[in-house]
C-alpha cells in the first residue's frame, strides 16, 4: 500500500506493507535513525515521536496509521541551526550517557513543555514514566527538562551545578562535599 505523511515538515510518500511499524518506517525507509527501538512490548519509549503533537510510541503505531498525519522526530527538533532548549538542557545538565533513550525522552519533554511551560519535578517524572533510561538514574533528565523550562521562560540563572569539588584529602584534613538534588 502507499502511505503519505508529513515528517518534520516534509511530505513523504512510500510504498509499504500494511503491517510495517512506524518506528521501522522512520528508521529503515526514511533513514531517520534517531528514533530507536528498545523493546517488543511498548514499555521502553526509546521510539517516542510526536504524532500531531502528541508523544506516541512509534513501535505501537502502524506506519499506515500515520498516513495523512504529521510526525515529528528528534531530527526535527533543531530549527534553523539552533538547538531546541530541551536539547541544550540535556547537554548542560548531563541528561544523557549512552544516548539511546535520549531522543524519545527529549520528544516527550518537548511535548510536555509545549503543554505546560512550568512543570513540577513530579509532573516531569510522571511525563517520562513511560520511558526507561538505563544510564542516568533520571535525576539529570529531570534537571535537563527543568533547565529547558527556565531557559524558555527567561528565568534561568545558572546551570545546575554538579556537586562542588571537595578539597583533596591530605591526612588529617576534613573532607568537604555538597549534595545535589532538590535541596541544593
Amino acid at each position: 500500500m502507499q502511505v503519505t505523511m508529513t515528517v518534520n515538515g516534509e511530505e513523504v510518500t512510500r510504498e509499504i506493507e500494511g503491517r510495517l511499524l512506524l518506528v521501522h518506517f522512520l528508521r529503515d525507509h526514511l533513514q531517520l535513525t534517531g528514533t530507536h527501538w528498545g523493546c517488543d512490548t511498548s514499555n521502553c519509549g526509546t521510539c517516542v515521536v510526536r504524532l500531531d503533537g502528541e508523544p506516541v510510541k512509534s513501535c505501537t503505531v502502524l506506519a499506515a496509521m500515520a498516513g495523512g498525519h504529521e510526525v515529528r522526530t528528534v531530527e526535527g527538533l533543531e530549527q534553523n541551526g539552533e538547538l531546541d532548549p530541551v536539547q541544550r538542557g540535556f547537554i548542560e545538565c548531563h541528561g544523557l550517557q549512552c544516548g539511546f533513550c535520549t531522543p524519545g525522552m527529549m520528544m516527550t519533554a518537548r511535548a510536555l513543555l509545549d503543554s505546560d511551560p512550568d512543570p513540577s519535578d513530579e509532573e516531569i517524572r510522571e511525563a517520562i514514566s513511560g520511558q526507561i533510561c538505563r544510564c542516568t538514574g533520571y535525576a539529570t533528565i529531570v534537571r535537563s527538562i527543568r533547565w529547558a523550562a527556565a531557559e524558555e521562560a527567561g528565568t534561568r540563572t545558572t546551570a545546575p551545578d554538579t556537586e562542588a569539588p571537595a578539597a583533596e584529602q591530605p591526612a588529617g584534613e576534613e573532607p568537604v562535599a555538597t549534595t545535589t538534588g532538590s535541596a541544593s
Binding site: Y138, A139, E163, A166, A177, T180
Partner: peptide, 10 residues
C-alpha cells in the same frame, strides 16, 4: 527512584 544525594571524598 528518588532524587539522589551524592557526596565524595578523595
Amino acid at each position: 527512584v528518588p532524587d539522589w544525594e551524592t557526596g565524595f571524598t578523595v
